[in-house]
């Protein structure tokens, strides 16, 4: 009698635990459905916000430039990864041009897996917002930067610290954000 009671109680407790687990998983799945499931690396994912040094040839002068020396020239720099074959880059170009007349800001382009000829004609056609244009022929430098596609944009200060990272083309919200940071 006592034993049977015990077994029954065990059964109830076990069922209750299972029920609770099931309910929790229901709500977790329910919440997961609403989450975005395409992954973007976030800025706070990488613990070092600082840019590693690298040197690349300039698009027009073909002179090898070190990113570290370039960054030290102005208070803020925008590093923009672009390519002539990238369609959103065409639209983005006008945003970059609107940013190109700040005194304390320079725009450094990283020309991603492109042909020199195509890159130059792109800039002729849409305008050239870049103070410097570094040529990343095989795409490995973009990996050093922690980027994975075009276009991608970084706002970096003099100390090589990344303040902002924009995946995909720049829009008006990003523009305001950049403005508020550099006007401080």
């Amino acid at each position: 009698m006592c034993l049977q009671y015990l077994i029954k109680q065990k059964k109830i407790i076990f069922s209750l635990i299972l029920l609770v687990i099931l309910l929790i998983s229901f709500f977790i799945f329910n919440k997961a459905l609403k989450n975005e499931n395409v992954y973007f690396p976030k800025l706070n994912d990488n613990k070092d916000y600082y840019i590693e040094d690298f040197s690349l040839p300039e698009l027009f002068t073909n002179e090898k430039l070190s990113i570290k020396q370039l960054l030290e020239k102005k208070d803020f720099s925008i590093v923009n990864i672009w390519a002539s074959w990238c369609v959103p880059c065409e639209k983005e170009n006008s945003f970059l041009i609107s940013l190109s007349n700040f005194d304390n800001l320079q725009i450094i382009g990283v020309n991603y897996k492109d042909r020199n000829k195509n890159a130059k004609s792109f800039l002729n056609k849409f305008g050239n917002p870049f103070n410097y244009n570094l040529v990343d022929a095989n795409g490995t430098t973009s990996i050093i930067l922690g980027a994975y596609g075009v276009p991608e944009t970084f706002l970096i200060n003099k100390n090589k610290k990344i303040l902002l990272k924009i995946i995909g083309p720049i829009n008006n919200n990003h523009l305001n954000e950049i403005n508020s940071i550099i006007k401080k």
Partner: peptide, 11 residues
């Protein structure tokens, strides 16, 4: 991974 993403938003 689905659970972890919901609970701690770690992917």
């Amino acid at each position: 991974p689905i659970f972890l993403d919901v609970i701690s938003s770690e992917k």
